[in-house]
Structure formats: structure tokens, C-alpha cells
Design a protein around this nucleic acid. Structure first.
Lengths: 207, 207
DNA sequence: ATAGTTTTGTTAATAAAATAACATTGTTTT
DNA sequence: AAAACAATGTTATTTTATTAACAAAACTAT
């Protein structure tokens, strides 16, 4: 099992490499990849070492092979299905953004309570009423859920998602969720991020 | 200067405390605050120690005082102005979300290129054409920028923001930005987050 | 009042992440 | 062919973050 930070960077390596692939050389040096992401060459080499890929000395890494290896590590070749709960602005932002990327992860369904949004295709995703969550999850075999709904319902929905077999949750609501140990939970809170920026700006200016 | 992770948690403590304040007791124990956020009591106590606040033994922390102390640390009492660049779904999601919270950080202007969105009030924020970025920044004395625009323009906008005096950037675009050393840059990438969840789900199932 | 309990505050230990150091290998130059 | 160079791969060190350990204080019960 790779370190969290390495996994995050692998995702970024792959994305950068995919755009690099289209126009540039067949090989890439660790310092080139590093500078594309503002990292150090050592960190790039260490991450690549951890996934067991090995480049050729003096030539660097084969872009194609490296993408392949990272993909194999990150999604293991298998298609992964995700659902999104809450199709407000955030939900639409995520789906729009996500569908424009090449990825083995596919958002296969959205859930909403707002009647005007149900049984329509929104941002390319078929949207269902929250009531049919269990049925759709069974049909689609989704293992991941993205939560972009309003806080009050978040824990209820989470319980139902987990019960229906969801194994990973990306939580954009500001409330801390309760999940069993075998479910991987990743939280992201925009307000916290902005407050963090504000704090470090203040500290930097102080100096 | 506090550790990054502590700053993040302080932001979350404050939020949780603010809702706690309304209905519950005057004091709170470290283990209570911890369990509200799924952290350990030790971590809570250590963070609180780092900001130099001290509770009373056997009674816990005064909710009011702790909120005050955290606020003093995070925003130092001063109002902080932020702008947002890009008022697509993501921009709207952020502003809606943010304006519903009590905070010393205020989003004072939005920038857009889309003519239909300019000189209107969107999600409660006055929206301007990107051309007037420099003028508005001078007027509002904003120090923080949130980037929720489409990638191609991101670096250009960043250069202009930095030149106009922005000291902190929260970047939601997927491209890595170049900023001078004295500007604090925080990146958040949704695709990376989802791919991370997918990886750890896969690994957990494997076991 | 004394012993026991509960909670804070702080130091010590451990774990995770990043960085530095360097050995190795293939390429180029002379 | 030998020396110099430039890149990778890996181990060692340092830094950052978390967790554990425990002393001190304040309340409770006997």
C-alpha cells in the first residue's frame, strides 16, 4: 500500500504526462516531470521507485510506459463506477470537470431530491430521486460516492450508501461523517482551505 | 507559525464550536470536541496548547473563549477580503457555501469573461469583467484570490493577480501555477481526490 | 481530610513524509 | 580506452505530524 501523498502525486503525474505525450518527446527526465508540477526530481524518482517502474539511465522514463504503470497501480485496469449525491452547483462543477478527463473512473448516476432535477440528464449524468439510491447502486455496481449535498441529510445518505455497498466516499459537506472502518473517507472543506490561506498570508506578511 | 494541519483543524474546531455554542453547555471537554470531529482528545489538547489557550481542569474549555482565541489566531480580528475568478458552477458553489458561514473573510468581487455574467450580482457577489481586475483589486484591498476558472487562462490571471498585490491563492484548476515565493499557494484538485479514494478502496478490498 | 478520579498540559516516543547523500550505470568527450 | 558527466535507484537523514505517557490540578466520595 502506497503512502497517501505518493498516490496523490501519481494522479498528477499521469495527468501531466497525458498532455505531455501528445506533443513532446517519447521520454521524460525526472527533473522535467518535477518542474512541470513544481516538485523536486528526487521526489519524482522516489515515487516512481515505489511503484516499481524503472526508467533507463541517461534517457529518463518512457512516457507511455510510465502512464501505463501508473494506471495499473491507480485503477488496476478495471473500470470503477461512482455516483454523485447532490446536483447543485458543486455537483455540476464536479461532473463537468470530471467528464472532460480521461479516466477509468466513471460517474454513472446522480441523486437529487429536487423534483425539477429528477429523471433528467444533467451535465451528462442521469439524475435519479434519492429514494431509488439502493436500486441504482445495485444495478450500477458503483463503489464510490461523491457527496455534494446540503449538510442536514449527509449522515442519513451516508448510512444508506454504506449499507448499499459503497466502499469509498469523497465528502464535500462541512459535517464530519461517521463511517465504518472498512469504508475509505476523504473529506474536503472549502472554508477550511480558504481560512488556511488567510492564516498563512497573515503570517507571511507579519514577517 | 503553526503547523499546517493544526491550522486546518483550528478552522474545523471553530465551526463545530459555533454550532455547539448555540444549544449546549458553556464548557466543552477535549474528548467531546474530538468526537465531534472524529479526532483524538490528545490531538485537540495539543492543538489548543499550541495556540496558547488554556482551559480549566476538570471543567474543560470555555466555548466562547476558545472560539475567540481561535479567531484571534486565524484572522487576527481583521477583516480579510477575497476575490473569486471564474463564476461557473464551481464559483457559484463556493460563494453560496461561503456566504452562509460566519467568517472574517469576505468575498468582495467576482471576475468573469462571459458577457452575460458581467456587472450583475451572482450568488450575492458583484461580478466584473476580467479586464477591470487591477482596478477592483486596488479598490477592495483584497489579499486572497480563489481560482475557479478554466485552465488555459489560469497562469495569465495568476500573474496579474500577483502583480496587483494578491498574497494568497486557492487554486481549483488542474494546472500547476507559478507564483513568487512570498505568495501562499494552496492547490485542490478534485480528480486527484477521487482517484485517491478509488486507489484506497481497491487496496482495502484486496486485503 | 484523605484517597481516588477525571481532566488538562506537556514532554517523550513513534510514524509518515520529504530531503539529502551517494553509489551505479550508461553516454559523451578527449 | 579512460575520464568526465548526467541521469537513475536506493539508502540515510531530517523534518513534520501523530500518538503515547505521565505529572499536576481540581473535584468527588468516603
Amino acid at each position: 500500500m502506497l503512502p497517501e501523498k505518493t498516490v496523490e502525486r501519481l494522479s498528477m503525474y499521469r495527468r501531466v504526462l497525458q498532455t505531455y505525450q501528445d506533443n513532446k518527446s517519447e521520454f521524460i527526465y525526472s527533473h522535467e516531470l518535477a518542474s512541470l508540477l513544481h516538485l523536486t526530481p528526487v521526489q519524482v524518482r522516489r515515487d516512481i521507485m515505489l511503484i516499481g517502474y524503472t526508467g533507463t539511465q541517461r534517457k529518463g522514463y518512457s512516457v507511455r510506459e510510465l502512464i501505463e504503470k501508473i494506471s495499473q497501480i491507480l485503477d488496476g485496469g478495471a473500470q470503477i463506477n461512482a455516483v454523485i449525491v447532490g446536483m447543485g452547483h458543486l455537483g455540476k462543477a464536479i461532473t463537468n470537470y470530471f467528464n472532460s478527463k480521461r479516466s477509468k473512473i466513471e460517474i454513472v448516476a446522480a441523486f437529487e431530491n429536487d423534483a425539477t432535477k429528477i429523471n433528467r440528464i444533467i451535465s451528462g449524468i442521469k439524475s435519479y430521486h434519492t429514494d431509488s439510491l439502493e436500486t441504482i447502486l445495485e444495478d450500477t455496481h458503483a463503489t464510490i460516492a461523491i457527496l455534494s449535498l446540503s449538510p442536514p441529510e449527509a449522515q442519513d445518505i451516508t448510512d444508506r450508501l454504506v449499507f448499499a455497498g459503497i466502499k469509498g466516499i469523497l465528502n464535500f459537506t462541512s459535517i464530519p461523517l461517521n463511517v465504518p472502518e472498512d469504508v475509505f473517507l476523504e473529506n474536503y472543506d472549502m472554508v477550511t482551505s480558504i481560512e488556511k490561506v488567510a492564516y498563512f498570508v497573515k503570517e507571511k506578511i507579519k514577517k
